[in-house]
Write a protein that binds this DNA or RNA. Sequence first.
DNA 1: GCGATGCTTCGGTGCCGGCCGTACCGTCCG
DNA 2: CGGACGGTACGGCCGGCACCGAAGCATCGC
Lengths: 234, 234
Amino acid sequence: MSTPNRMAEIGSLLGDPARAAMLGTLMDGRALTAGELARVAGVTAQTASGHLARLSAANLLAVERQGRHRYHRLASPDVAGLIETVMRIAEVSLPAPRARPRTGPRDAQMRLARTCYDHLAGGLGMAVTDALVARGVIRFDDGAGTFTPTGLERLADLGIAMEPGPARGGRPLCRPCLDWSERRPHLAGRLGAAVCKHFLDGNLVARVDGSRALRITPKGHLALRERFGITELG
Amino acid sequence: MSTPNRMAEIGSLLGDPARAAMLGTLMDGRALTAGELARVAGVTAQTASGHLARLSAANLLAVERQGRHRYHRLASPDVAGLIETVMRIAEVSLPAPRARPRTGPRDAQMRLARTCYDHLAGGLGMAVTDALVARGVIRFDDGAGTFTPTGLERLADLGIAMEPGPARGGRPLCRPCLDWSERRPHLAGRLGAAVCKHFLDGNLVARVDGSRALRITPKGHLALRERFGITELG
DNA sequence: GCGATGCTTCGGTGCCGGCCGTACCGTCCG
DNA sequence: CGGACGGTACGGCCGGCACCGAAGCATCGC
């Protein structure tokens, strides 16, 4: 099979509204059951099952059987990156749908703070990224990021634990990820995942219902102000 | 229109073999006529015309009218990045087609040296990137790249002119771009474009027929050895 | 065992869209 | 002007696939 055909295969997988909805939902990095995904896609269980089988066959999804449930999640950060890229291009290049895109409260919440696979995105993601730059943990210019030599200890000062060492599994430590809503790069990679985990584990943010959006807790607001020097988002 | 639907729209545009072939061909950064694109896609002119109209309507392509010709090119480096990303994921995650992918001489040429929109890729792209790192022009780690403070003069030592200054049009100076065949990041961004231009203008490489592949000229081999310290590719 | 639940497989229907033949429009050239 | 050429609009054909209903498996709980 030629390369263009392989690309077309991936494209057509992303090109169905039901599958796109499922993939978008899985962008929060969690694993969901076929039934949940059927609901978000607005199709019946048997239709969803077919979609999920195709996505898994193409190794875009990974499944874990657990009892009578099948948990589906994105197969890798690379796949998450692909989806984020497509979303960004869609946002940028597709002509505006119609007048104002009438952003609902849900959209506003998403833009303010959300997860992007396993790291922070949206206004919160940008602010945290900027704070880490300001505190000398990472450098972030030219749309590219690097961990500074002293980054690890400064990170520890912020209360975030992070194992040093080379990238495992080829996953970069500090990767830039172009933000879908902000259109500037935010922090991704292993460091981004660690930061996000710190925020979730420390109850600084909480997941909003079943979406990618995050709600910043009172404790989180305090920490952002005291430790990160962030007073305003977005 | 919701975000998943916008993503699906992009996906379905990439998801047709004929359109995928056209986009793949345009990855060399040049502008081609509708007739040429029809030929590479293996469809008639009227079919190609419809495809191109749809791609342009979605702002994935830009057209320039010139006499009775219409030249089509990728709308932006972002679109090129999107396509490269999809190709890479397709290569990595799609199950192997059948036994050995029987790479033809054409494929070998592509893997050795090619353009990726407007910068160098393949074995040559990796080698040049590594050489620039070794010579202290750029730093490239963690899958991210930055221009060093002394990079500009060291670049001039290599005979490559480059305007300094901030990114114009928001395009980063030194961006990493994950190589489709090598699966490591190579140099992209404005610097990558300048390097590629230097290689083409200086006749160090020449385009191979109508593909993205590049042939390294004798002069190019000499320059690679003498100036870049590159003796072996890939 | 039996039912309930979660998921998949199968069969059939309907629609979207890719494709081409034909015809039409604009540009270049003799 | 008239023909050649590149490109575009229209109409009809047809294959693929998204969808659902019904039925078939697996697993859990009683």
